[in-house]
Amino acid sequence: MSTQNNESTAAGNVDDAFQLYDLRIEVVCPPGEPILCGAKQGDYFTLEGEMLYLPPGQGFSIYSLGAVLPLLAAKQRETHPNDWMSTDAEVACPDPHCKSRLKITRTGKRTFRHGEVTAVPLGG
């Protein structure tokens, strides 16, 4: 299957498929260091398309979420191998006294269709 937007299919229809990475965002901290945001080592959430999922019974600091959220849409997409977004995977905790980090890992790819995620037509 082609992942090129606007590519014609054999039936003459437009292939509006595109792919995004699923992400896992996990709390990591040097051994013995306190985590000040209420998280525990290994706490995580996942991002699948636009949907964020937390494991049952686990919370996540809104301040930590605020630190990592602006990067997630870019991490979901293909990036050039030389782009820092391709190589850098850890975001510092927003509390300057906390040594924890949020590690972003690409876990797989998921295919979406333009027509299923927006009302705006391709080329429009």
Rank of each mutant, 00 (worst) to 15 (best):
M1I: 12
Q4C: 13
Q4H: 09
Q4R: 11
N6M: 13
A10S: 14
G12T: 04
N13D: 12
N13F: 08
D15S: 02
Q19K: 10
D22H: 14
L23D: 11
L23I: 04
R24M: 07
I25A: 01
V27I: 12
V27S: 00
V28M: 07
G32I: 05
G32Y: 06
E33Q: 06
P34H: 11
P34G: 02
P34S: 05
P34V: 02
I35G: 09
L36A: 02
G38F: 04
Q41H: 05
G42Q: 10
D43E: 05
Y44Q: 01
F45A: 00
E48P: 02
E48T: 04
G49V: 10
M51G: 02
M51H: 14
M51P: 02
Y53C: 07
P56V: 06
G59I: 09
I62N: 08
S64R: 10
S64D: 15
L65R: 06
V68S: 03
L69V: 05
A73V: 07
K75Q: 11
R77H: 09
R77V: 02
R77T: 05
E78V: 09
H80G: 04
H80L: 14
D83N: 10
T87R: 10
D88E: 03
D88F: 06
D88A: 06
A89R: 04
A89P: 01
V91W: 07
A92Y: 05
C93A: 04
P94Y: 13
D95A: 02
H97L: 08
K99A: 12
S100M: 12
R101F: 03
L102T: 04
K103S: 13
T105E: 15
T105A: 10
T107P: 09
T107E: 15
T107A: 11
R110A: 07
T111K: 14
F112A: 03
R113P: 13
R113N: 12
H114T: 06
H114P: 01
G115S: 15
G115I: 01
V117P: 13
T118G: 13
A119L: 10
A119F: 14
V120D: 14
G124K: 12
